[in-house]
Design a protein around this nucleic acid. Structure first.
Lengths: 154, 154
DNA sequence: ATCATTATTTGGACATAGTCCAAAATTGTG
DNA sequence: CACAATTTTGGACTATGTCCAAATAATGAT
């Protein structure tokens, strides 16, 4: 019933602290944020929070199923509060921006591997790689002037 | 025409060195190996090789398309020499072992995301998560006795 | 409201994976 | 063979994250 952030924490057996509320709010405001970026944002909101506390909180939220961690190659872990729907991600090879994408085939796409090697599969994680609109070479214009926040491959 | 490891390196504009040959051989022998493990193996073969050299070689091989790098969550980068077929991977959540799986739908599976957010998508990377045969709880027997080489989630 | 208990937070040290850099060694070339 | 270009080496450094014990804050019971 209680859908507030406080209720969410309590219903998962967690005590309510300013740090947790702030970190929770932060990943809601900025999905796909890194731990260190989240710490920065949180500090602006409540003045001070230790790095360790941000890591702890994020790990706890993931454990309790209140947050999801993804980790595209060449990127530190990213956190988002969209959970429970097994959506996928689209990552720009140039600037690293991440967008959500829904499952293409409706539900649990690709969960049947062609040969499961006798594994018990519980999740198919799909990462689409490409170039975001901003990083795409513009038709005739020069394509050299970008400000990559991430090392471009190749 | 020259299909030897030496020819492979030369045809990609790389000079042939003992270090490169050894690292190349190593990822062929041990697909899904980490850089540090590859260094260990390589040292057994040729006596000595610097850590940096292994990293350099692996990066070069990936750049030249002679190797592929994958990076499952909570794992250092893994290297394999199977390239050019965009196959996928099956990862055990308990012991971390990685197996190859072919594309379920034949070619470029899932490459059509439901909504591409105007990205130009060039690859769909699929990681299947689950439990390998060895790590699966056996029917009625105790399920506590495993030797996890990787921190189990939960 | 206050106290005791338990959970959380903090800061500092540590670990791991990987990169940067300049000097030394090796490879390919004329 | 000798020279130029490439590669290798080792040491310092960076980034991301974890471990630990002490200090602090939150919760539950008076």
């Amino acid at each position: 019933m209680d859908n507030s952030p406080e209720g969410l924490l309590r219903s998962h057996g967690l005590s309510v602290t300013a740090q947790r509320l702030t970190v929770l709010q932060t990943i809601t405001d900025y999905p796909h944020i890194t731990a260190d970026q989240a710490a920065e944002v949180a500090r602006k909101k409540i003045g001070a929070i230790s790095r360790q506390s941000v890591y702890d909180t994020l790990n706890t939220l993931v454990e309790k199923g209140l947050a999801r961690r993804i980790q595209p190659m060449d990127s530190p872990a990213l956190f988002e509060d969209r959970v429970g729907d097994n959506h996928h991600h689209l990552v720009c090879r140039s600037c690293g921006i991440v967008e959500d994408v829904d499952c293409s085939t409706g539900y649990r796409p690709c969960l049947q591997a062609s040969d499961d090697n006798n594994f018990i599969i519980d999740e198919a994680e799909v990462t689409y790689w490409g170039l975001c609109p901003k990083c795409q070479p513009k038709s005739t214009k020069s394509q050299a002037k970008q400000t990559p926040t991430r090392k471009a491959k190749s």
